[in-house]
Simulated scan of single mutants.
Amino acid sequence: MDSLVSIGTMEWTGAVLGLLGALLLSLNHRVSRYGWPLFLLSNFMWIGFGIATDAWGLVFMQIGFTLTSVNGLVQWFVRNKK
């Protein structure tokens, strides 16, 4: 199967972005809000990985995490500007 991104790349990119997002949030600093976009990108990588490997439980979980990432983005970037 030819694809733009390999399965291994999706897996490791998702893992690294997720860890970086968690690190940024744990700093409790003004840069912490940038953890949410990293989480969102990680979610997309994991969804792609789950679809490619037929890991539907992982896809379901990542859809839920995508909703929490979107909520985090709204809280930190939209509501905090008001």
Rank of each mutant, 00 (worst) to 15 (best):
N43P: 05
T9F: 04
T9N: 03
L19I: 10
L58V: 07
G64E: 12
G14D: 10
Y34R: 10
N71C: 11
T13P: 01
G14R: 15
F77Q: 11
V31H: 07
F39P: 00
V16P: 01
A15S: 14
L4H: 08
M45G: 03
Q75F: 11
G64I: 11
N43E: 07
L24R: 02
K81C: 08
V70W: 13
M45P: 01
V78Y: 13
L17I: 00
P37N: 08
F60L: 13
N71P: 04
M10V: 00
N71L: 14
F65I: 03
L23T: 05
V16Y: 11
F65S: 00
T68D: 06
W56P: 00
H29D: 04
P37Y: 10
L41M: 13
M1N: 10
L67T: 03
T9M: 05
N28W: 12
V74C: 08
F44Y: 12
A15W: 15
W12G: 03
S69W: 06
Y34I: 07
Q62G: 03
F65W: 06
L4A: 09
G50C: 05
N28D: 14
N43H: 09
V78T: 13
M61L: 14
F39L: 09
T9L: 06
R33Y: 11
R79M: 15
Y34G: 02
R79V: 06
L41D: 06
V78P: 04
H29T: 01
R79E: 14
S26I: 01
L27C: 03
I7V: 06
E11R: 06
P37Q: 11
F39K: 07
L25N: 01
R33M: 13
L19G: 08
S3T: 08
F49K: 07
L19D: 10
